[in-house]
Design a protein around this nucleic acid. Structure first.
Lengths: 102, 102
DNA sequence: CATAAAGTTCGATGATCGTCGTATCATGCG
DNA sequence: CGCATGATACGACGATCATCGAACTTTATG
């Protein structure tokens, strides 16, 4: 796997919770969870700048929440649901359910 | 309720996740969940300073995770498990289970 | 090759964070 | 009252954060 993607068993709880504590990033994760088909970064959070979005994706990737790979000129993103679930069972589900609530 | 304690329906997800993203605070919450009987603040996280501990408890209280009240010269703390569960079902459980993992 | 599109990188800026030490406040006890 | 105890308030410090704009890289396409 490309660099900056931690292995399943190296996903850090503090990093995950910190990554999810930002509403912008939580929105990206929620969208990613809802679509299930990989999408380019640019199709998320259109209200913010390219550089800010790039920063958010880096945080998500380094926390282990998202896998990314190049496809042409686009960088695709996928939610690492299974890996996160394997490390912290139920955490992602409860957070995603909470996003819908409040 | 004393000030700085948000109502159940006002508990903010970002605040909760941010509060739980700090290992020190996560340890306090885990201890609080394990004991179930209220304990004074001073009996937690003995490695850090009083003022730092006071800061952490304020973050936890303002996030809605902990309720505090005075008892003599001690300030007691209780995990607001039911209130947090009512707002974000399963979230606290999954985080506490994750604390045990890694 | 030239241009366009999609992201990254690099400061920079203002805000927030975790930690500390000291001073302060409230309560209990002699 | 005077003193001890438990906790908060107030700066202060370095670190990190979210955001931005401008410059750069990479890939595709004319």
């Amino acid at each position: 796997m490309t660099p900056d993607h931690p292995d399943s068993d190296e996903i850090d709880l503090s990093a995950v919770l910190h990554a999810l504590s930002d509403p912008q990033r939580r929105g990206i994760v929620a969208e990613l969870a809802a679509s299930e088909i990989p999408r380019p970064c640019g199709s998320f959070a259109p209200a913010i700048t390219k550089s800010t979005r790039s920063h958010h994706f880096r945080v998500l990737r380094e926390a282990g929440l998202v896998e990314q790979w190049m496809e042409g000129t686009s960088k695709m993103s996928r939610l690492r649901r299974d890996e996160v679930d394997a490390r912290f069972p139920g955490l992602l589900d409860s957070v995603l359910r909470s996003v819908a609530v409040g």
